[in-house]
């Protein structure tokens, strides 16, 4: 466990990330409406230590009630239409 944490710390030090945002935040609720799974894979990675979008005050939240932004991926299939409207 310590190895993991130490490696993560070293990784973080080796990446020259731009300065974190000092003000403001945005809560994002993601709804997949028929994507090719690429958006989901990349969205998962922007939370990883290499990009770490939390530094800019961006976060994925679990409910549309908590969200400022509804992030829709995919062309909106007929079967997701009603679910998207509910969200």
């Amino acid at each position: 466990m310590l190895t993991l944490l130490r490696d993560l710390r070293n990784l973080r030090r080796s990446i020259a990330l731009p300065a974190a945002a000092s003000t403001g935040s945005l809560a994002i609720r993601h709804v997949d409406c028929g994507s090719c799974n690429g958006c989901e894979h990349e969205l998962t990675l922007v939370s990883s230590p290499v990009v770490d979008m939390a530094r800019y005050g961006l976060g994925i939240v679990a409910s549309p009630r908590h969200a400022d932004v509804l992030l829709v991926t995919g062309p909106v299939t007929t079967r997701m239409h009603a679910a998207l409207l509910t969200a």
Binding site: S35, T44, S63, A83
Partner: peptide, 10 residues
């Protein structure tokens, strides 16, 4: 579902 809590497909 179909919409899950995290970044997950539908």
């Amino acid at each position: 579902g179909p919409i899950h809590a995290g970044v997950i497909e539908s």
